[in-house]
Computed example of a mutant assay.
Amino acid sequence: TLVILAVLFAVQRFGTGRVASVFGPVTGLWFLAIGIAGLLHIRDDPSVLLAINPYYAVVYLAEAKAGAFLTVGAVFLAVTGAE
């Protein structure tokens, strides 16, 4: 992580366009790789697909009063990129 950050800061002086032209495809390949790995492992335990059912989120929010507030706040920050 430190090496990647150091390289990004070192090449940043050449402009964000150049950094994005390298960093964008690398990030795309990374997401493609973890997506393929995830799809391949759904066969191992298909019940993981239950995670996209909103029923479980509603039940959690109803039962965990204090934890629900923190969870919704963290999700909001992560989705908006404000973290």
Rank of each mutant, 00 (worst) to 15 (best):
G24H: 15
R18G: 15
I42P: 05
P25R: 07
V59T: 08
E63T: 14
G15N: 03
V7C: 06
E83V: 15
T71M: 11
N53G: 03
L70W: 07
Y60D: 04
D44N: 13
P54V: 00
L49N: 05
T71E: 01
Q12P: 03
L5P: 12
V48H: 10
A66E: 08
F23A: 10
A33F: 09
K65R: 10
G38F: 02
V7D: 02
E63A: 13
R18K: 11
L50T: 14
A57N: 14
I4V: 12
D45A: 14
L50D: 13
F14K: 05
L77Y: 01
F76P: 00
W30S: 15
T71G: 04
V7I: 11
E63K: 07
L77G: 10
R43G: 13
G35P: 00
V19E: 03
P46T: 08
A51P: 06
Y60K: 05
T1F: 15
V11M: 04
F31T: 03
V59L: 10
A20G: 02
F14N: 03
A74R: 04
V11E: 00
V58H: 06
V3P: 11
V79M: 06
F31N: 07
A68V: 05
V7H: 07
A20T: 06
G81N: 01
A51G: 02
L70R: 13
D45C: 06
L70Y: 12
V48F: 10
V19F: 07
I4D: 14
I52R: 10
S21C: 07
W30R: 14
K65P: 07
V75F: 08
R43W: 14
A66N: 13
L2T: 08
G67C: 03
L29T: 09
R18H: 11
F14P: 01
Y55I: 12
A62V: 11
R18C: 09
E63L: 12
A37V: 10
I36V: 10
I34Y: 08
A10N: 12
A33H: 03
L49K: 05
R13Q: 10
V22P: 00
A66I: 12
L5A: 14
F9M: 15
V22F: 10
L50M: 11
L50N: 09
T71N: 02
A74F: 07
V72E: 00
T71S: 11
I36E: 00
Y55W: 12
V72S: 03
S47F: 04
D44H: 11
F31P: 01
V22G: 00
G38I: 05
G73H: 04
G15E: 02
L8N: 06
A82H: 01
Q12Y: 12
I4E: 14
V79K: 05
D45N: 08
L49G: 02
A74L: 12
V26H: 03
F76D: 00
V3Q: 13
V75E: 02
T1L: 15
I42V: 14
L5E: 15
L70C: 10
D45Q: 10
F14T: 09
V48R: 08
A74T: 02
L61A: 07
S47M: 06
V26Y: 03
A78G: 00
G24D: 08
A6N: 11
K65W: 09
K65H: 14
R13E: 08
F9L: 15
R43C: 06
V19C: 02
A6L: 13
